[in-house]
Structure formats: C-alpha cells, structure tokens
Design a protein around this nucleic acid. Structure first.
Lengths: 324, 324
DNA sequence: TGTTGATATGGAACGCGTTCCATAACTTAT
DNA sequence: ATAAGTTATGGAACGCGTTCCATATCAACA
C-alpha cells in the first residue's frame, strides 16, 4: 500500500507537487504531471481518505436520517437530497432508524466525530434538547417542523394540506368527513390531526368518533378501514386519508362492495404516490423531491457560510382526479 | 472545537496521558484521570474520528452490500452480520445497490480509500475481475458462491436443499413432483433448477413440462399456480416451491377448492419464513442469520490474521410441518 | 541494601494529505 | 533594463490521535 511520499520519490518531485496533480491544481509542468500519474498507476496508489478528511477538516459527506428507506416518502426525499448533493460533490450517508431513538443517537455521533459535514433529519424522534446539543457540533437541517431554534427547516405546511382537502370536500357539499392517519404522534401526524379537528369544529361539520382511524399504513389497512366504515349505520360521505396506499385500499374494497367512487364514498389521499394514478385518487401532492433538494441546498449553503433563511415552507397542491 | 492538546494543557498532563485516559489504558493515577475527564467535560471534547482512523490505520467499520435492505433474506442477513459485529466492536455500514453495478463500484471505493476495514458481499453482480482487483485493497467475504479465489465464502448448499425436499417427498412415495421457482436466472435459481432436474431424471420421477413454474414471488402468484395445477387433468401429487410466500398461496387456494393438504396435494416451501408457520408449511430452512454471523466472524478473523477456511458451507434443514 | 518489576508520565515520531510560505525561473509591460 | 506579474516547485507546518521509547518513581523481594 503506497502513499504520497512514495509517489513523490518515484516521480522525482515533491509531495506538494503530487498533491497538486492529484487535485488538478495548476502550476505543474506537463512532464512532471505525467511522471506523477505514471507513478500512481505503477504503484496502484489510492489516497487514504482518512488523511484527506483529517487534513481538510471535512469529509464532503452529508448524513441523512430516515425511519424507513423503502417508504415512498423517504425514498423520494433521499432522491431529492441525493440529486442536490451530486451538484456540490457531496456524498450521502443514509441511515435508517426504524424510529429507534438509540439508532438515531448512534448516527448523531457521526456529526460529533466529524465523519459527516452536516446532517439532514428526514424525520427525527429525538427531543429538542438532544438536537440543540448536537447542533453545537455541526450544521443540521430538518425536513419537518422542529421546536429547535438551532436547526434550519424545510417543510410543507401541513395545516394548509389538510385545509386544501377539507375545503375541497366542503365545496362539494360534504358535511360528514372522516379522518384516517398513519402515525398520530409524529410531527406531521400531530399537525394534521390538530388542523383537521380545528377545521371540523370551525366549519361545524358533523362528527362521530368512529370516523377516526390511525396507525394505518398499508393497502391492507385501507381494506380494513373500508370494511369498517362501510359496515357503519351512519358512515361518512368522504374520507381524508393520510396516505395514498391506505386510500387505495379503501377504494379497492369499496368498489369490490359495489360502492360508487366518488358518488357514494369520496376519498382524498396524501402524497401523490404512483398508486394514486392507478386508482384515480384525488390527492394532496407534497413536493417531496423538492423538499429534499431544498434541504440539501440549504445545508450546503449554511456550511458554505452563505446567508440563508432558517425556515423554508413549501406549498402543497391538490391533484384533482376522480375520487373526490 | 477542542482537541487533545487543549485537554492536556487544561488537565496539566501530557497528550499521551490524555490518550491513555480516553482509551481506558492502565498506568494513570486516579487524580490525573479525574483531571482529564473534567477537562473533557468542560471543553465538550469529542475525538476527531478521522484522526483516530488515520492513526490506527483502521476504522472498525465493516461494509456490507445488499441489493435490497427490506427483502426478508437480506434484512436477516444484515441482522446476523450486525450481531457478530457488535461482539467485536465493529460498526456496520450497509449499502443498498438495487442491483445497480455503478452503486456497487461506488461502495467498493470505501475499501480502497480505507474508510472500511472489510467488505461483506450480501449479493454482488460485479464480475470476478473487479472483485479480484478490489481484494488487493482489503479483505472480502461473500455470502454467496463466487468464482473469485480471492474472497472467502460462506453459503448454503442449495443442491442439498433441493435434495432434502425431493428425498423427503420420495420417501413418502411421491413420483409426480412439480417445481415452482422465483428468478430462474439468479445464482440460487440456476443451482436449484439444475439440481432438481438432475434428481428428477436420476430417480426416474414422472415429469410433465406444465408442472414447472418460475418468476413466482408472491402469495397471489401462488394462488395462480394452484389454480393452474388444480385444473390440470394429470396434476403433480407434490410441489417443491422456492418461496414460502408462494407456497402459502398455493395452500390457500387449494384448501379453498376443498383439496386436502397434504393428502391430495403435498407442498414443500423454502426459507422458513414467518408465514410458513401460519399455514403449517413444511419448508427448507436456510440458516440466514447464521450465514451473516459466520461471514462477519470470518471477516473479523481474517483481519485479525487468524488461520481460517476460505469456504464455509452451511447446511439446510427440513422443517417438518403438516404440508408434506 | 541492592535488584527487579510494576507503575506512571512525557517527548517525539508516526499515519498521510493539504496548504502556507518562500524561492526560483520566466514573461510581459514600462 | 528594470519592475511587476506569472508560472513552477519544494520545505515545513498543520490537522489530531496513537504509540514507541526513554525515564522516573515506588513497592517488593532476596
């Protein structure tokens, strides 16, 4: 295993010159450059990245924490982040936590230990105090709302998302609207729930407690939800569903039971996932990839010492299809 | 951001002593140790891991390449690897390639750049030449068969898996055995197919071409397969099915049609997945977690310069339940 | 009491690139 | 011809822990 000194010796130049060649810096005569490259070739030289990182004081790696990599929301988020990272020559270290706080803390150390230059929180469940303390060691951007004043944020306005959905349903005359969510304790979940019930009360909509569902994530869950509401004596005329997957399940089961969508049951999903096109689901589109790109861009600019806003809000959009 | 020199100054000891304290080495007076720890606390000292890695010449990180993290086979494999890594104080960097060769090469650089100490190939699609070249830069263990002489291997004997299944069925008097597989072109697929037809011919079993199915992966696929064979005028008395999911689908549909399992249709699955218990499926268990543990242990011992075998074969096991 | 071995501590070198600074050679403009 | 600016190159310091080696202290044993 060779190092830069050996290359320098073999090419009969100084270590500095070798470094210049390897980093494509100017002020090296072509013949010396060739000599260095030839030595690199012959000695199978590969730089020791630990030395580079130590010397430069940075790794050109961003870390990103997500609960589940294979969840469509987070895979799209990571895609957006990755896109932007490529532009600035940053690599990406993706860490799946399965919502385990220990797993989060473990990864946070990467920032402390200087193994990553910055951290993007796809979704985090650590308390503000931990995040605040961590921010002492490096720059952090969150892709969801966070209480912490120390981190920059890029997120969509989930209140307005729920409002888009409810307003749309109200404009169609719906008065009996049910709600079906995923995790009711996540940042998004809390906001959506609060926002929904605020609107429900404010607009004087009819409400029954058995029109509420949570911890629903899959198509199968949606099928169950549909079975439940379709068996109710007084069922809602419309459902706001926090996930397109679940909404698709509801539509699937409802149609199977001969219920006409949207005449007999109106459904609005969230996220504009691929499946929403298939079942012609009206849905609230989150610009997920854009969130990712914006977050990575923000982190890059913070580290680059540029003046940047500490909060960026992106707007949601209702995609009108046939289910509502 | 403080470093070891500042700690030394503040605690009025040498840098060496600080290092001793931080690494829990002996020969430090308790009062000095306390002084160091106090300084660490006050200056919020955190070691720069890049410096440690550079200095020690290793990172105590193993890398593992898998096509899909959320596939049950690979998630179990990673679990086994992780378990063993914990024992030896190694961290794990998991990289999902989605079978993209570019993604693989990218990660291979981690080994060249000395960012990981060793590499475990959960499954790789790179040609032998690439792997051979890579092995020059660090130790590699493969969890599947590989042509490369340069990497250690830990895998199960897929021939013997098929043999276990066929022998079991033969011992029950079956002469008409069908085969249902997943991907017939994967390493495992090719081996299983070859092995099955070798045994089928050797044992003089009856064969009809419409007893063969492939590209079957899901419960739904299994339902389709069952519909097909149950409609055949001369159907097999037993099926060897490459996936428990698919086997479960077959059993589900067969029972629905009033077919008695195993009296009228015998089914053997593969992988001992959770679902196999539910449908009381006899299945061939792959010791996936053990493969992971063994691979990580092997890598650890190779790096530790111990004498180790270059190939370890693990045995499959027939889990007898009620379907065969 | 002298010797041995364990305990304790620090200086200096090392791992390996990068980068600042000084110097040298060579142009170009004045 | 001289000043000023480029181009080219290397020495040395730096980033930050770890570890080898030398030295010093002290208790224990012969």
């Amino acid at each position: 295993m060779s190092n830069i000194t050996e290359i320098a010796k073999k090419a009969k130049v100084s270590r500095t010159t070798v470094s210049r060649v390897l980093n494509n810096q100017p002020y090296v005569k072509p013949e010396k450059k060739d000599a260095v490259l030839k030595a690199v070739e012959e000695l199978k030289y590969v730089p020791n990245w630990n030395a580079i990182n130590l010397s430069k004081g940075r790794t050109n790696v961003f870390g990103v924490i997500v609960p589940k990599i294979n969840h469509p929301f987070f895979s799209n988020l990571v895609e957006g982040i990755g896109k932007e990272c490529n532009k600035h020559n940053y690599s990406l270290l993706v860490h799946q936590t399965n919502n385990d706080p220990k797993k989060e803390l473990e990864f946070f150390n990467m920032l402390k230990y200087k193994l990553i230059d910055g951290l993007i929180l796809g979704s985090s469940i650590s308390p503000v105090s931990i995040i605040d303390e961590l921010s002492y060691f490096g720059k952090i951007v969150s892709c969801e709302f966070s209480e912490s004043k120390k981190v920059a944020k890029v997120f969509v306005n989930h209140e307005s998302g729920i409002k888009l959905a409810v307003d749309h349903l109200k404009s169609q005359g719906h008065q009996e609207i049910g709600l079906c969510m995923g995790n009711p304790r996540s940042g998004v979940g809390v906001t959506r729930k609060k926002s929904f019930f605020y609107l429900q009360k404010e607009s004087g909509l009819i409400w029954r407690d058995d029109w509420y569902f949570d911890e629903k994530y899959t198509i199968e869950d949606g099928i169950d939800v549909a079975k439940t509401i379709l068996a109710q004596s007084s069922r809602p005329t419309a459902m706001v569903v926090g996930s397109d997957q679940v909404a698709a399940g509801i539509i699937y089961e409802a149609k199977k039971q001969g219920i006409k969508i949207p005449q007999e049951l109106t459904v609005i999903g969230f996220d504009n996932q691929p499946i929403s096109k298939v079942v012609e689901l009206t849905t609230i589109n989150q610009p997920i990839i854009e969130i990712g790109e914006t977050a990575a861009n923000l982190l890059y600019r913070i580290i680059d010492n540029q003046e940047v806003p500490s909060v960026i809000t992106l707007e949601l959009e209702l995609i009108k299809r046939k289910s509502a």
